[in-house]
Structures are given as C-alpha cells and as structure tokens.
Amino acid sequence: MTAGSLAALVALGAFHGLNPGMGWLFAVARGLQERDRSRVLQSLPAIAAGHAASVGAVAILVGLTRSVVTTRAIAVGGGAALVAFGLWRLLSRRHFRWVGMKISLWQLAAWSFLMSSAHGAGLMLLPVLTGAPAPPGHDHGLTAGLSAGLFVTGVHTLAMFATAGTIAVLVYEVVGLTILRRAWLNMDRLWAAALIGAGTTTLLTA
C-alpha cells in the first residue's frame, strides 16, 4: 500500500469520526443522560467495533475477490451505489433522530454497524481498495487479500476512533448538546457530498 493510500485511509477515518452520525453524538448523549463521563468513554469502543464490522465487511470482500473482472465490477457497482446513496442523502429531508432511551453496549455496537452501513462507510473506501494492485497467486492472493482487508479496516477504524473519542470528550466537557442541531445538518450535507465525490472518483478510475 502506498503512502498516499495510507493517508487516504487515515483521512477517511478522521472524517467518519468527525461525523456525528457515526456515533460520537450518541456517546455524548449517554454521558449527559447519566451525568457520567465514563459512559462516554465506555460507548466509544462499542461504536468503533460496529463501525469496523461494517467497513470490514466491504474491505474483506474486495480483498478476497481481486480478479480484474471482479474488481472492476465491484468498483463500477460500488461507485454507482455511492453516487446514488449520496444523492439520496443529499435530497432526503429525513434525518436520524436522537432519543433518550438507554441501551446496552452490545445494542450500541449493533446500532453503530447499521448506522455505518446506512451511511455507506465501507463504500467510501472503494477508491483505496480497488486501486491497490492484486496480489499474485490464488492461495497467496486469498491470504494477502484477507490481510489487506483487515489492515485497511484496522487503520481506518483507529483513525475514526481517535477522532470521535477526542470530539466526544471535548463536547461532553465543554459544549454539551444544546447547540449541535445545526451542526448535524451541515455534516449530513457534507457527508452526502463526500459520498457523491468518492463514487464519481471510483467510476472514473474503474
């Protein structure tokens, strides 16, 4: 993997961590609900695990199916899905609502997986995943593809976790939830535009 690809993984992870829809807002809400910062910190690994599962499913699938035809099909199909999903998010007036219910860490991880999948988190890595050269040899290729998928997932999730964790603690300690409604709307539109941009890049380079 090139330095540029690695930097892209970290940047995308940081971008996902910045997005309140990826979980840091829910971590802050849990902390404020119980007036306990430890609830914020406990929530973050569960959120990261759910995000990693969503991203890893795409990364490993691409890593294991590295034939030229399959890679191109995934790139074209994934790029089209990115653009379509981004347009839907950009034009949709529906937004996820934050509620006051209490949930377990397992439920939070499952929620994070579904939220990340709904936002197309794994799909955004397609330009990096499909741009990497295919490893030679069938058996070696499968092992290398699996390792590459796990590596990509790990680097991306670590960047997401560090960014989301920093923001969650700062917001909990300093800002609170009262002024975040407008910021959520802005991030939602920015996220949709990023999806469209990533999809267009994937289609152009497929």
Rank of each mutant, 00 (worst) to 15 (best):
L126K: 07
V83K: 04
G120K: 04
G100Y: 00
G145W: 09
V68S: 10
E34W: 00
F113P: 04
G21Q: 03
K102R: 10
L142C: 10
Q107G: 15
Q42D: 08
S67T: 14
L6H: 07
G23N: 12
G131S: 06
H16M: 09
G79R: 02
G13W: 03
V40F: 00
P135S: 10
G17W: 00
P20L: 01
R93W: 14
V10H: 08
W98P: 06
G56T: 03
G50K: 03
G31L: 01
F151D: 10
G4A: 14
I167P: 08
F161Q: 06
G120D: 01
L44Y: 00
H119N: 15
F26Y: 12
F113R: 00
V175T: 03
H119R: 15
W24T: 07
F151L: 13
L150R: 03
M101Y: 12
H119W: 12
L114D: 01
W98T: 09
H156C: 10
G78E: 12
G100L: 01
H140A: 13
L6K: 11
S43D: 01
L6G: 12
R189M: 06
S104W: 01
L90F: 12
F113N: 04
A7P: 06
M101T: 09
R181N: 10
G197D: 05
P136S: 08
A80H: 04
D188I: 11
L203T: 11
A109N: 05
V55I: 05
G149M: 09
I196V: 15
G77M: 12
D188P: 04
R30F: 11
V128G: 11
A59S: 13
T2Q: 11
L123I: 05
W184F: 13
S54A: 15
D188Q: 02
W98A: 04
A59G: 11
A75T: 08
W24K: 06
L108F: 11
T178R: 15
G78D: 13
H156Y: 12
Y172R: 02
L170D: 11
G145I: 09
V83Y: 02
G154M: 08
V99F: 13
V99G: 15
R94C: 09
G199T: 04
T200H: 06
V68D: 14
